[in-house]
Design a binder for these strands. Structure first.
Lengths: 196, 196
DNA sequence: AGATAATGCATACGTCCCGTATGTCAATGG
DNA sequence: CCATTGACATACGGGACGTATGCATTATCT
């Protein structure tokens, strides 16, 4: 039963993040009792305060984990597309679809910004924005997109996407709304394409 | 000292909304103690629970008040513009600027959605979206905008605007970022204009 | 007009939850 | 082999929310 110390610690951290992520993603940050979800992980609040300082610290760790996963997924999507432009559109669509997943929506788009402020700021540009920026830069190099500041465009699209997702997810008829939203969104993207 | 009953009640409601609005807009919803801000208004939590049910109920009332004010302001802006298109652009710019005001940003774009869910949903389309939609419809009638679903476009712009505002407000250099953001935003709007 | 019902609002209480201060046990290192 | 550090649990205090209850003033009914 030789278990290196570091391994035990990492395991504890992982359990806390996983437990917090589940709680935050389902009942939400405010309603999640630290005693409850640490208990489910076989730990106590003591461990949480030791590793993350406070409840917000744990949320931050959870968000960084999710952000990394999203970045990875976005990169995969744009990588397999046949053309640059198609990859761009696919990436944006994927972003909307991810924002429909309850856990991502709740943690990344609702509770995260509310508790920690603008998430895209307190880190040196998080993965999602960076991924979009890369795609846009490639399109600019190819001359396929109108003249627009890269990061601004990335954030415009980011904002529009997440609002589309919220709209769809909270609609009483998500299917129908989704059709309208994606169609409109693609129309907007299309208008950004350089025409000649 | 004859004061009609209804008047006293309305005054109490008004005081509670004003006090809550100030507290929510400055320190934020979560940090605002009901005992504190009702006390500042010369009342107690009893009055609040009587009129609004709970803390969230008061937040909802505050939001409705602010939404009405924003709608009014947006209508004024688009009314004085020389052309339809200019009115539309001005309206969008005004929306970004409003989202820069700390109170609006905090209540309407951070705490509101986090506590109550998608605000633009639990009401039959709030004023801000409706105002944008009206402008867009006029542009469509004039054939000045690309073919796109009206409400979808309104929400796209709404989402993009609020993210621009968050970006600007939280930047360490708001002036510079503001320039980039507004320029990029106008570029996007321009691309929505029908070209010939 | 007097009695009664209803309503606006305050007070009192219980409970939950967070943050800190303190304690304990195991691991590491000299 | 002992001392120190660090990981984590337990104990405690405070604050905030929601509800139940009480009181006073106004509305209602005969």
């Amino acid at each position: 039963m030789r278990k290196p110390r570091q391994e035990m610690i990492a395991e504890t951290r992982g359990k806390l993040i996983a437990a917090g992520r589940r709680a935050f993603g389902t009942i939400g940050y405010a309603e999640a009792s630290m005693d409850d979800f640490t208990g489910e992980a076989g730990l106590t609040r003591g461990a949480l305060y030791h590793h993350f300082g406070d409840k917000r610290g744990l949320l931050q760790a959870v968000i960084m984990e999710i952000d990394a996963e999203m970045t990875e997924r976005l990169n995969e999507v744009s990588a397999v597309a046949p053309t640059r432009w198609q990859g761009f559109v696919d990436e944006c669509s994927a972003y909307i679809e991810m924002a429909l997943e309850p856990e991502i929506q709740r943690i990344m788009f609702r509770d995260g910004p509310a508790v920690l402020g603008d998430i895209s700021q307190w880190q040196n540009t998080p993965g999602c924005i960076a991924a979009l920026s890369r795609s846009i830069n490639r399109l600019k190099a190819d001359g396929e997109i109108i003249d627009i500041d890269t990061e601004t465009a990335a954030r415009l699209i980011n904002g529009a996407s997440s609002h589309m997702a919220l709209w769809i997810a909270n609609a009483e008829n998500p299917e129908a709304v989704s059709k309208r939203a994606v169609a409109g969104f693609k129309a907007m993207l299309g208008s950004l394409r350089r025409q000649e």
